[in-house]
Design a protein around this nucleic acid. Structure first.
Lengths: 192, 192
DNA sequence: TCGCTTGTCTAGCGGTGCTAGGATCGAATC
DNA sequence: GATTCGATCCTAGCACCGCTAGACAAGCGA
């Protein structure tokens, strides 16, 4: 048994290495630079090894996306739990979300811009993604307002944050007014 | 002179053909299917001809994006000018925007998801893009609220629409509640 | 009719994601 | 300890990508 267990451990370790290396490479040089050849070279294995862990590049992106979702959920919960009152919580949530997107652009892309082959908004959505949405819902639900479905409100607020994150990073919005946009968003959308 | 003019006309016509064909192919099979080979085959010329009109694939995407921006500006203005009162105008604007994104996903991608090599949010932004933003500003500026900069408000509202458009189309948001999300967005963001 | 510019094509470069098939290595058996 | 045998990994190659150099032909002005 021990031999098999060791092999499984090594395999799992290598899989983590692949994901971490892909993520690192993507953050350094963008996802276009994450080719199977370069990735294989960095982990010091040949290309086909990647395909013994993942079906293809898409699945590697998906693995990075799941990692990111877990991290973002943590970041959002950490920010909101340190804030007092609904208003401070929502503001902290918005800042934490946008900060994460700005600090981890490649991971954010893996989650929401690229095709990682993940299911969304249905029952077989992976747990980390559902939990990340839950993290948003926890703080946003309380400011949805009377008669407004908390889930629906969370979706709209999330969409606004996503729009700000992507448009800002793509240079479609001038970066200097980012903070004022957040304030406007919180002031208007949340019922305080 | 006449010979040269005829040639220029033919050249301009072929350029329009390239852009139209790229757009058509992208809408039919997605941008991944728009390869220079396939595009060349469809217009019944060889690949290098494409490069005598555009610097590369990116510029072709950019040309489609500009076309889309002009169309979207028209669609938004048509919708808002047919509506009575600020509230109806904003709702019509939101619906027109999301409708355009849903009906022309490849063009929308060219504008906001892909790299078309276009400048944004600065002085050498192409006219159609500035005008599309202006079309939003015309109706959104009047509901920004006291003391809120109309441009900033338009940016936030636009970001929210963009988030709804992209997340819905990528399957991140369930499509059935789209209309309720629009109503919530208009109710809360606009000062009526 | 000739020369020349202009335009177009064929062919090919280095890269991509992905895979078939052979070599090698290590664990289990005799 | 030698031998079998299955798991594991790599070399080599496929079809395709964006893009370009250089050969070639067509149509213009002289």
């Amino acid at each position: 048994m021990s031999v098999q267990e060791r092999k499984e451990r090594e395999r799992a370790g290598r899989e983590r290495l692949i994901v971490a290396t892909a993520r690192e490479l993507a953050e350094q040089q963008g996802w276009d630079a994450v080719t199977t050849r370069r990735l294989a070279e960095r982990i010091e294995y040949s290309q086909p090894v990647l395909y013994s862990h993942f079906r293809g590049k898409r699945e590697i992106i998906g693995a990075v996306a799941l990692q990111g979702a877990a991290e973002m959920a943590m970041a959002v919960r950490a920010a909101t739990s340190a804030a007092d009152g609904p208003r401070a919580r929502v503001t902290a949530l918005a800042r934490a979300y946008l900060d994460y997107a700005e600090s981890n652009p490649a991971v954010y892309d893996a989650m929401f811009q690229l095709d990682g082959g993940l299911a969304f908004a249905n029952e077989d959505t992976p747990e980390p993604l559902k939990d990340a949405f839950a993290a948003l819902l926890e703080s946003l639900g309380e400011v949805a307002g009377d008669g407004v479905h908390p889930g629906l409100f969370t979706e709209v607020f999330w969409a606004a944050l996503h729009g700000l994150a992507t448009l800002t990073r793509a240079g479609r919005l001038p970066p200097e007014d980012a903070e004022r946009r957040v304030e406007l968003l919180v002031d208007r959308l949340a019922m305080l």
